[in-house]
Design a protein around this nucleic acid. Structure first.
Lengths: 140, 140
DNA sequence: ATTGCGAATACAAACGGTTGCAATTAACTA
DNA sequence: TAGTTAATTGCAACCGTTTGTATTCGCAAT
């Protein structure tokens, strides 16, 4: 995602407005050192700018997703998490027994992606996949 | 999922109660010829038994999932869909452009499952996967 | 048939997230 | 610098789903 500075530049370049809300949401995601939820972003932003609304957070996240600046991951917690897209695409193995989350390099899905392309002519978007199951500690 | 009769038997065998709500929810899923949503199940049940509540539908679906009698699929419509588990495990390729849904045989994911097991000792539960992307008609 | 008990229910409120719309405002023009 | 206008926002209502809780009810024992 680079520096917030770059992103702000990119936004206005593409004709999007640079609003204080967007800047604060951007820096909340940037400053998070792991995956952050919309609610957490909102809490951080509202502390400095109380009039902001949660729907603005969701709409901004929607925009940033569309521009490939953030990646969304559903880890099955009943809430989705976000992180800067340039921190690398990785996937998650989520243990349904103990809740452990194991990072999975995106290369693990390269052959699946190729198969889908070859056999189904389908361009799979595998940037934010969570696979559920049982980890080594939870199966006997 | 077999006959509703069998399932009802299985439920009471396992110590679960056989209630009219559960029977009606079961037959709604059974009679659907494709994937059915909780809302659609509810609509069908409420027509014959107006006092039933939507939360009962969700809790029953939760139970049936746990007992491996129904499978849940999230096709990204903002609502989850259900179908009898014994109708076969297949996956879906969902086109984010035109909304097309392409069925994908579960065998397409066998090699991924093996890789995860071998390299991560992770038993992946790949029964209800939706993969998003672009179909052949929507990419140039 | 009646009782007792715990499982299942209806109901209401809450959850995370989305949407329609009127008011605000960033960024262009003059 | 002020004026214009379409993008963006706040707000409120809504969506599908989940959860807490008091009440109901299936079912085994009497």
């Amino acid at each position: 995602m680079g520096q917030p500075r770059d992103i702000i530049h990119k936004l206005s370049e593409l004709g999007y407005r640079v609003t204080p809300q967007r800047m604060m949401i951007l820096s909340a995601i940037e400053n998070s050192d792991s995956h952050i939820s919309a609610e957490e972003i909102y809490a951080q932003v509202v502390a400095k700018y109380p009039r902001v609304n949660i729907s603005t957070v969701y709409r901004t996240l929607e925009l940033l997703k569309r521009l490939d600046l953030v990646t969304e991951t559903d880890l099955g917690e009943g809430r989705v998490r976000y992180h800067p897209a340039d921190r690398g695409h990785h996937h998650h193995l989520v243990c349904q027994e103990c809740g452990a989350i194991i990072d999975l390099d995106e290369s693990a899905l390269f052959s699946l992606r190729d198969t889908l392309l070859r056999e189904y002519k389908f361009v799979a978007d595998l940037r934010h996949l969570a696979i559920f199951g049982r980890c080594i500690n939870c199966r006997q």
